[in-house]
């Protein structure tokens, strides 16, 4: 018996979009509930009349409209988000998109550098048994050092060498980016089967030819998932690197200033924006993946 699957765009949308929508509504509901519960004590203490002359409806409204709520309600975040995007010129530090551009720039530089470093390291590791044994433990160990600890050190050192702005942040993004790429590419470059390497051997192919014609194309399905992880990790790195710089620009800085001034709504809208940025970046990588691997079968 074959399962009947409805076709057409509407059926497809219902099948794929509906579960996502249901979860989103559930999350929104939980969010509102959380906002009400968490903000209630402060609302009773600061906003509502002290004599106790308020109804539960007053409490509900108060928790949704507070100036500095513990947990801002979704619509507050929504309003702040749009006003931060639309009400200021693009080059103003008050515009959220300005900060997005700053963070995206260092993320992308770090991503490019991390990917290149990962590619070079993996090719070295695959082609040399000595490097395999010498490098791999250090690469793994590098990731056990928390990025929060390493970021200020990198910033100080690079700052003393005259590098400021994008470069130090990109280096920290790279530090988080190169690891998944290296690990996946080592696995991917080793994925060709014996029969395939022997075949190139019978053609008397050079090492570079078998790298270029066999190992690299065979490793691509391993590379792209690592790139998706890598670019998201790079975004985290770039934002962490923005924290100790005195918080001038970037989504990380925006988060920090928000917490300085107790502006929770601003923190949340920066948070939503960084999630959107991360989503956009991984979607772009996934799109490139689909384009590059479009001819390969799923079998």
């Amino acid at each position: 018996m074959t399962k009947v699957v409805a076709r057409g765009p509407i059926a497809r949308w219902t099948r794929q979009g509906l579960p996502v929508l249901v979860i989103m509504l559930a999350a929104l509901l939980a969010w509102y509930l959380g906002a009400w519960l968490l903000n209630a004590p402060a609302a009773i203490e600061r906003v509502l009349p002290q004599d106790g002359a308020w109804r539960w409806q007053d409490l509900l409204v108060a928790t949704m409209e507070m100036q500095r709520p513990v947990l801002p309600a979704p619509h507050q975040v929504w309003q702040d988000f749009w006003s931060a995007v639309l009400d200021w010129p693009l080059d103003s530090p008050r515009n959220l998109l300005f900060h997005v551009a700053v963070t995206a720039e260092s993320t992308l530089w770090g991503f490019v550098m991390g990917t290149l470093l990962g590619l070079v390291l993996s090719v070295c590791i695959v082609h040399s048994r000595t490097l395999d044994r010498a490098l791999l433990p250090w690469i793994v160990a590098s990731q056990t050092v928390p990025v929060l600890a390493i970021a200020p050190i990198v910033l100080v050192i690079l700052g003393s060498l005259g590098f400021a702005g994008v470069a130090p942040k990109a280096v920290i993004a790279m530090y988080l980016c190169f690891f998944p790429v290296t690990v996946a590419m080592v696995q991917g470059l080793r994925s060709p089967q014996r029969i395939e390497t022997e075949m190139l051997h019978t053609y008397a192919a050079t090492r570079w030819q078998s790298l270029w014609l066999l190992r690299l194309p065979a490793a691509l399905p391993f590379l792209f998932p690592a790139l998706r992880v890598g670019i998201a990790a790079g975004l985290v790195g770039a934002m962490v690197a923005e924290l100790p710089t005195g918080a001038q620009a970037g989504l990380g800085a925006r988060l920090l200033t928000g917490s300085y001034y107790g502006n929770t709504v601003q923190i949340w809208s920066a948070l939503v924006m960084s999630a959107l940025l991360g989503l956009t970046l991984t979607t772009v990588v996934a799109g490139v993946e689909r384009l590059v691997l479009r001819h390969r079968s799923q079998a």
Partner: peptide, 30 residues
């Protein structure tokens, strides 16, 4: 090294990322 022989393995061992034509041109490309 003088490319004296062609070897056909038990499995076709075709590269899935190359077309049929691309697979046949592989040794020539090398």
């Amino acid at each position: 090294l003088a490319r004296a022989y062609g070897y056909v393995f038990q499995a076709p061992a075709l590269f899935p990322w190359r077309t049929v034509l691309g697979n046949v041109t592989l040794p020539l490309q090398i």
